[in-house]
């Protein structure tokens, strides 16, 4: 399972993409956020942390599958 990172989250993890091995694959959005926060406590300091699954905002209960496109969306600041 691959996860894409943008903006400040890309700086925090030091990469625009991370692969999760099958043993550590989060089952849903809530689990993914929990794993990321435990690996990168800096995420807790952000104003918000959203997740997109297949380029749609996804709430905590949305399940994750290996072939989904998953992205971490820090606070947006376009315009």
């Amino acid at each position: 399972m691959n996860v894409l990172f943008f903006g400040i989250t890309k700086d925090i993890v030091g990469s625009s993409e991370i692969s999760f091995s099958d043993d550590f694959k989060p089952i849903n959005v809530a689990e993914l956020k929990k794993q990321l926060i435990s690996s990168y406590p800096e995420f807790l300091k952000l104003n918000s942390l959203a997740v997109a699954v297949n380029s749609e905002y996804a709430d905590d209960s949305v399940p994750l599958n290996g072939n989904d496109e998953i992205a971490i969306i820090p606070p947006v600041s376009g315009g």
Binding site: I8, A52, P74, V76, S77, G78, G79
Partner: peptide
């Protein structure tokens, strides 16, 4: 259009 773009569209500025 501009207010909602600033709230929801995944674009980031440094």
């Amino acid at each position: 259009l501009i207010d909602t773009l600033k709230e929801t569209v995944p674009i980031w500025k440094k």
